[in-house]
Design a protein around this nucleic acid. Sequence first.
DNA 1: CCTCCAAATTGATAAATGTCAATTATTTGG
DNA 2: CCAAATAATTGACATTTATCAATTTGGAGG
Lengths: 204, 204
Amino acid sequence: MDMLVQNKQEVRFRTGETIFKQNTGSSHIICFRKGIAKVYVEGDNHKNLIVKIVKDSDIIVSGEILTQSLRPFTVTAVTDVECCFIDSARIVELLFSNLHFTLAFLEKYHQQSHQMFNTLVMLTQKYMPGKVADTLLRLKNDIFLQNPFYIPFSRQELADMSAMTKESFVRVLSEFKDSGLVATHGKSFEILDEEGLVALSRNG
Amino acid sequence: MDMLVQNKQEVRFRTGETIFKQNTGSSHIICFRKGIAKVYVEGDNHKNLIVKIVKDSDIIVSGEILTQSLRPFTVTAVTDVECCFIDSARIVELLFSNLHFTLAFLEKYHQQSHQMFNTLVMLTQKYMPGKVADTLLRLKNDIFLQNPFYIPFSRQELADMSAMTKESFVRVLSEFKDSGLVATHGKSFEILDEEGLVALSRNG
DNA sequence: CCTCCAAATTGATAAATGTCAATTATTTGG
DNA sequence: CCAAATAATTGACATTTATCAATTTGGAGG
């Protein structure tokens, strides 16, 4: 651990800055201290798919440390972000020397891919109301952890998390407001009927 | 390695048999010797999503070895299958004792999730012709490795790989045949214009 | 070789989603 | 505080995809 801390580089990014870019080689692991970032895939047709939201104490790990392959996603700061870059050579050293670290690393990596797996399966199997419900629940329960909550995301970004167009997202959101499931003003959201959203999410 | 081989259990499955079931605890890694199996997620609404095709020399690794969580997918034999079950306790022992093994394991795991990641992103970003083109190319280039090739899958299963209904899959396939992109009779497929399919896959 | 059953295909139609344009907030910079 | 730019919302419509029903094909078992 000491070794890690000694070799970290602290970096700050402002809202909108790219932390790193799809198809770039990566020699570092990124450890988030503060702020929110989005991990997304840039499609050919100007469609982005946000696969993960990162916040403090999250880590961007990918096996690329070992295999030298390119990262298949871009990471961009959604708010101002503070994070550490840790040289992957250090990680490899630790993998070689510290078994507890190796296991923790594997576990973290597994958690990440498991979560991404669930997200993406969800996105291929549900209709729009299910996807919107899911996105809203995830924001409340996994990211912001409070009920009236403020999101730094645009509607376009919410749509990119749900694999649909912003217009469709807004339309479904309006229906949810009419049905009394959620309330919003601007970027403040409040979940009014979590049961109802969960039910929608299950049915598709 | 000796340790692994000593502790393996050889198992055979017949076409259609379940190798293991979604939401089951798993204490073993499975190593495929012969035959083809499908890894899929069973949705609520009777919709299955095939996330991966497994063949000889593939391994079903998941981080569950360490974390005791449940596997989020089912694996079923598509042809007769021979495989080995390896106790995960052995894997953990090896992780502790053999660094080369640890790295190889991480790399394998990374390869797997990377591939699944690409598949699922593809499925959320393309229209039907792109998805069908992609599925056909993947079958030829990643699974069967020859050009006129025979697939043990039903049309329903091909559709489940492409996240669409069997009717839609068949319809798109018919168009491809009319355009001279592919030829099929029954379960034999031949890619006639790979360029054309690649182009379709890119455009969506 | 025939029969029966399941799979595959096709067609007609409905539902879901995306696109484009117009309008209404909302934010930003001076 | 205002103007201009940007984001959000709504509507009309086109496209894509799913659903349901009908028909055809192909294969297994007698």
